[in-house]
C-alpha cells in the first residue's frame, strides 16, 4: 500500500508535475462547469424541478452566508459557494473506485487555504481599502495586532490541516479496511466518509466566510455608539 501522503505523478508538464489529484481536479472542474452550463441553459420565470433544485442550492448557500455573518451574500456567493461545491464533490469523488479525492492531498488543501487567506485580504481591501484591511488587525485594540497577524496565518493553516487530516484519514482508513476485510466491509465507513466530506466542506466554507466577514467588519469605520433609545 502506498503512503497516503505520497502523490502519484502521471506526467510532467514543464515545471508542473501533473499528479492524479490535479487530473481529478480538472475532471471535477469539467463536470461542475459543464453540468452547471447544461443545467442553467434554460432558466424560466416558472421554474421546473431541475431549476428549483438549482435555486434551492443557491438559496441555501445564501441563507447560510446571511445566517452566519449577517452580510449580503451576493459578493461572496461565487467564491464561498464554489469552495463548498468543489470540496464536497472532491470529497465524494472517493466513492468512485480508483479515484482518490484531491482534498486528500496536501497541495490541494494548501491551495484552498491560501485562496482563503488571499480572499480575506482581497475582500478586506475591497470593503475598507488598505487602511481598513490593516485596521482590521487592530481589532479590538492595537495590542492584539501581533496576535491577529499570527492568527490570520494560523487559522487558514488550521483549516488546511483539518480538511487534509479528515479526508486523508478517511481514505486511509477505508484503504486499510478494504485491504484487510474485503469488498463490502468498508461500505459503512464509506457512508461515514460521505458525511465527513459534507461536514468538512461545510466547515471549510463557513470558516472562510467567517474570516472574510470578520476582516470586512473590523476594517469598517466604527459605528456610532448605541444610545439609550437604540437599546
Amino acid at each position: 500500500m502506498n503512503s497516503p501522503l505520497a502523490s502519484v505523478t502521471l506526467f510532467q508538464l514543464g515545471p508542473f508535475a501533473i499528479t492524479q489529484a490535479i487530473v481529478t481536479t480538472w475532471a471535477i472542474m469539467v463536470v461542475l462547469v459543464v453540468g452547471a452550463f447544461a443545467l442553467t441553459r434554460r432558466l424560466e420565470a416558472s421554474p421546473s424541478r431541475r431549476q428549483a433544485a438549482l435555486e434551492l442550492i443557491v438559496t441555501t448557500i445564501d441563507s447560510q452566508i446571511r445566517d452566519t455573518t449577517g452580510a449580503n451574500p451576493a459578493p461572496y456567493r461565487g467564491f464561498i459557494g464554489t469552495l463548498f461545491l468543489f470540496i464536497l464533490v472532491a470529497n465524494w469523488s472517493s466513492l468512485i473506485p480508483g479515484v482518490e479525492p484531491p482534498t486528500a492531498k496536501l497541495e490541494t488543501d494548501a491551495a484552498l487555504a491560501i485562496l482563503v487567506f488571499l480572499s480575506v485580504i482581497w475582500f478586506g481591501i475591497s470593503a475598507g481599502g488598505v487602511g481598513g484591511w490593516l485596521k482590521s488587525f487592530a481589532a479590538p485594540n492595537p495590542v492584539m495586532i501581533p496576535l491577529n497577524m499570527l492568527e490570520s496565518v494560523t487559522r487558514v493553516f488550521s483549516m488546511f490541516v483539518r480538511l487534509f487530516g479528515n479526508v486523508m484519514s478517511g481514505v486511509f482508513v477505508i484503504g486499510i479496511v478494504a485491504s484487510l476485510a474485503g469488498l463490502l466491509v468498508p461500505i459503512p465507513l464509506m457512508a461515514l466518509d460521505l458525511l465527513t466530506g459534507l461536514v468538512q466542506a461545510y466547515i471549510f466554507a463557513v470558516l472562510a466566510m467567517v474570516f472574510i466577514t470578520a476582516t470586512v467588519e473590523d476594517g469598517k469605520s466604527e459605528p456610532p455608539s448605541p444610545t439609550n433609545e437604540d437599546i
Binding site: W26, A36, T40, Q51, I57, A74, R77, T82, P102, I114
Partner: peptide, 27 residues
C-alpha cells in the same frame, strides 16, 4: 502543484460564477 491547484480553483470560481451562480441568482 500547489500553485496549479490554486489556479484551478480560481478558474473554477470564475467559471462557476458565470455559468452557475450569476444565472441562477439572476433567475
Amino acid at each position: 502543484g500547489l500553485g496549479l491547484q490554486a489556479v484551478n480553483v480560481l478558474i473554477l470560481v470564475w467559471l462557476l460564477s458565470r455559468v452557475f451562480w450569476r444565472p441562477v441568482s439572476a433567475a
